[in-house]
């Protein structure tokens, strides 16, 4: 895969891995970094990063959230951009200024971080401009718009625009693509039966398109939908959209048998 990049050289990007990608699907991280590098960015992965703090934030634990936010702010100091493969976690970074009183030194730093933090597909579309992709994927796919990306960050057209550059891909939109899949972080554990109804509606809508692959931009939702599809015995594959964009679909899809990823950064 090659790409013709038209952007000025070397935007310095700090890559925000996110907990779920770190633990469940490292290949999403590698795919993202590959795309960022193709776009001419210099990518670093700060070692002191952990989680964005969302579980604490959404559970009403402001003090823990603030403490975690401080370490994220510290970890990503000095990067021109912070990019992550999740609208939800990046959306959380955008909330940080709310956590600090204006006289707290972290307040301004939180504002600065929020201004530099981007979800991957919107970064590649709205900020650096990824030129032409040369990726191939034969098949009909459908796309789930994850809530935080869609409504907090305005991620809607960007992944579709990028997908349209992948050779062979055809996109079939599902009904209620913008409706929540029922993941919701701790929600799916606290209210599992409600969550189940929501994800069942989602998988039904996805399958009704006849697509072979269900794509999305947030691993939480993808784990939820893949888990449901597998339980239903569906053969529909579930992947993070960057896997297709980076031409890295040799890995088994989410919830299918896994093998360690051998990262191959060659070719550019």
């Amino acid at each position: 895969m090659t790409a013709s990049s038209t952007t000025p050289p070397t935007a310095k990007v700090g890559f925000f891995v996110t907990c779920l990608v770190d633990m469940f699907r490292p290949s999403v991280g590698f795919a993202s970094i590959k795309l960022l590098e193709l776009a001419g960015c210099e990518v670093e992965v700060p070692e002191t990063q952990t989680c964005c703090g969302q579980p604490a934030y959404n559970s009403g634990d402001r003090n823990s959230t603030r403490a975690i936010a401080e370490s994220v702010i510290d970890a990503f100091d000095g990067f021109e951009y912070v990019v992550g493969p999740s609208g939800s976690c990046i959306g959380m970074l955008h909330q940080y200024p709310d956590l600090f009183e204006p006289d707290n030194p972290y307040f301004e730093r939180a504002r600065s971080l929020a201004g530099r933090a981007y979800e991957i597909t919107s970064f590649l579309t709205d900020v650096v401009g990824l030129g032409t992709l040369q990726a191939r994927f034969e098949g009909l796919v459908t796309y789930h718009d994850s809530c935080a990306g869609l409504r907090e960050l305005g991620v809607k057209t960007q992944p579709r625009q990028l997908l349209s550059q992948v050779d062979g891909v055809e996109l079939a939109e599902m009904n209620e693509a913008e409706t929540c899949c029922g993941f919701g972080g701790t929600f799916c554990i606290k209210y599992p039966d409600i969550s189940n109804r929501m994800v069942s509606n989602k998988t039904a809508n996805a399958q009704a398109t006849g697509a072979a692959v269900l794509l999305g931009g947030d691993l939480g939702c993808l784990l939820n939908m893949a888990g449901k599809l597998k339980r239903e015995g569906s053969t529909m594959e579930v992947r993070h959209v960057v896997e297709l964009l980076a031409n890295m679909t040799d890995q088994p899809a989410i919830g299918e048998s896994a093998a360690d990823l051998a990262y191959n950064a060659g070719g550019h």
Binding site: V21, F24, P26
Partner: peptide, 24 residues
Amino acid sequence: KGWTAWRDMPAPQGSTFMDQWKRH
């Protein structure tokens, strides 16, 4: 149980991203 009563839990690919990245 709340999760797996209704759906499978996809297993991780293997070692963490951070470990793989370090090796890389």
